[in-house]
Nucleic acid binder design. Structure first.
Lengths: 157, 157
DNA sequence: CCTCGTTTGTCGGTGCACTGAACAATACCG
DNA sequence: CGGTATTGTTCAGTGCACCGACAAACGAGG
């Protein structure tokens, strides 16, 4: 029996980590607005008037997924989409007042939740934790678009 | 504009980490069998004859999700389910020969993939990385079942 | 026995996430 | 100007993940 210890597999741990986060988010932040939805709201607070594709790029969601998330936020009246008069392909997105309000409220709660989530780690460990995840995620993402900006991974042709 | 830097949010990073893993899994391990499906195969290699619920507990999936994953593996002929003669509620699960074969093949590939995935980190960092994720995930999971082991979070009343 | 409460699995509903394909509007090139 | 990419959005299909409700099966008391 060649069974493996899953607790040494980063993918398995990543999944469990996200489940843990989902659980905490539901109880401490919101049952209506999900974490990806909040990320979209946040992106539009920072840069109102973005189009869908760019928002997706900012928060790390592909075109299909971002379309669903945005349509949900639209249905709830948290943002509005209008066609760009300059470029009839895009929708320009901006938050409604409701959207801004929701974002403000959840910002406070997410901060509290993050403290609880990272509670088991010391301050120094938390910084290391975030740094390590970011490095692993960035590297793997770099494998996808070799032709992005000035790149990360060494192998330029 | 009270926008927040998402790259300091562990939940956001956790999601991106999983996406990165998903991408690598698809290209380096299998497009047919997913990571959760492999986890189930692995659990049944270690302990043949488990029931669905217990498998779900081993790999960290709830009853609904594990049912879907198992039905997929069943449809592909990688495992068989028979009712427990002792307890008519459960199904006893065991891998078919095909299932064992697939598990063996993927075990090799996952090992390779994990090396690439963790490649950006040094050996020492990899150990820290896995340890930190495990601690955070375990702690948050502990919040769910207060009746688990001894308790984690400091802020008791 | 026969009810009461629990456990196992299923089902319906919602939501994230990816792929690949279709479509429309725009931009580029000869 | 016309034809061909390129880009932004949508749609169909698959799969993970959660919750709540439900039926069948079990277990313990009466």
């Amino acid at each position: 029996m060649a069974a493996v210890d899953l607790s040494a597999h980063p993918g398995h741990l990543a999944r469990r980590l996200q489940q843990a986060h989902h659980l905490l988010w539901n109880t401490m932040v919101s049952e209506e607005i999900t974490s990806p939805q909040f990320a979209v709201l946040n992106a539009l607070v920072a840069e109102p008037g973005l189009d869908q594709r760019t928002v997706g790029e900012r928060v790390g969601l592909d075109r299909s997924t971002i379309a669903e998330v945005i349509s949900r936020l639209d249905r709830r009246g948290l943002l509005g989409k209008v066609r760009d008069p300059q470029d009839g392909r895009r929708f320009l997105l901006r938050l409604t007042e409701d959207g801004v309000r929701v974002h403000r409220k959840l910002t406070v709660r997410t901060a509290r939740m993050n403290q609880v989530f990272l509670g088991p780690l010391s301050g120094a460990e938390q910084a290391v934790f975030l740094d390590l995840i970011r490095r692993v995620a960035d590297a793997a993402e770099g494998l996808r678009n070799p032709g992005g900006a000035a790149e990360s991974l060494a192998g330029r042709s």
